[in-house]
């Protein structure tokens, strides 16, 4: 299948705003699926609620359009009963890291074989550009007109520390890199997270002086630094910059592999447990 074959063409044009990064991520994902030769039937897309959470409207695989923040929980249930499926959780930063932050760290800890794709546009797009748990300190939003008093999460470090098997970051400007990171992540048996720094020109851009879609792309181009080079930057050079590429992960058996052993043990000792209650 080609990338376009995964696209629900009847649903086009995309619902997203002019210059929104979500479409770039969607396209990269479809190309990654095509590169991996994934069939529609073996692939399940789980979304939360938000602008990027509407990505399932355009994808011709199995899908469930869930609830805000709970995509990873739903995806966990899918993968746990059918480890053969390729399960993708598509979320905004609000979905994944703010309301759903607890599920994120536990999905990483559990090492469930789901790929989380996070469109990090640094705010809540769908509800009108309020700050989220990834909005940088000082940034403006529709609920932080005096500058965000809180600091934002580094999602990759968060997921990595919680035990994810693979964490990676790209931006919508680095679309080819994004595609190959997605290919890597989807091939990873444990929990993988691909954070995509994405443009929301309409809110984040407008509130922070970069309302033009091309200017926002330029901003990503300039702030992202390949991980190997980033490590060598002086602290002052790191200001306003972030690393992209594969950023970490830990090599542990995936949940399904470990749970298969639980099932074996339970089956071996079945006699002890099968008889519930006291027979009379």
């Amino acid at each position: 299948m080609k990338a376009r074959d995964y696209l629900i063409e009847e649903a086009m044009p995309l619902f997203w705003c002019r210059g929104c990064g979500n479409g770039i991520i969607l396209h990269a994902l479809l190309r990654a699926l095509a590169r991996l030769g994934k069939s529609r039937e073996e692939t399940v897309v789980v979304t939360g609620i938000g602008c990027f959470g509407k990505a399932d409207d355009y994808i011709r695989t199995h899908s469930i359009h869930g609830t805000h923040g709970r995509a990873l929980a739903i995806a966990t249930g899918v993968k746990a009963v059918n480890p053969g499926l390729t399960v993708l959780a598509l979320m905004g930063d609000g979905d994944c890291a703010t309301i759903g932050g607890n599920h994120l760290i536990h999905a990483a800890r559990r090492n469930i074989g789901v790929t989380a794709v996070v469109a990090n546009n640094l705010n809540y797009g769908m509800t009108g550009g309020q700050f989220s748990a990834t909005t940088p300190q000082g940034a403006r939003s529709s609920t932080s007109s005096f500058g965000n008093p809180e600091s934002g999460f580094d999602l990759c470090r968060l997921a990595g520390a919680a035990g994810a098997a693979l964490v990676a970051r790209a931006t919508v400007y680095h679309a080819a890199l994004l595609e190959s990171l997605l290919v890597e992540a989807i091939s990873c048996p444990g929990f993988s997270l691909v954070e995509v720094m994405s443009s929301c020109p309409v809110y984040y851009g407008r509130y922070n002086g970069i309302p033009d879609p091309a200017a926002m792309m330029r901003w990503w181009q300039e702030s992202a630094v390949p991980a190997s080079r980033y490590a060598e930057l002086a602290p002052e050079e790191k200001q306003g910059r972030f690393p992209i590429g594969r950023l970490g992960g830990s090599d542990r058996p995936a949940f399904s592999e470990r749970y298969a052993r639980v099932q074996e043990a339970a089956q071996a000792g079945a006699g002890r447990w099968i008889q519930a209650g006291t027979d009379r």
């Binding site: 995309l14 990064g21 979500n22 770039i24 969607l26 396209h27 080819a176 792309m217």
Partner: peptide, 11 residues
Amino acid sequence: QSCVLRCPDLA
């Protein structure tokens, strides 16, 4: 192909 990859609307 860079325009294809970066077009936000698959256009």
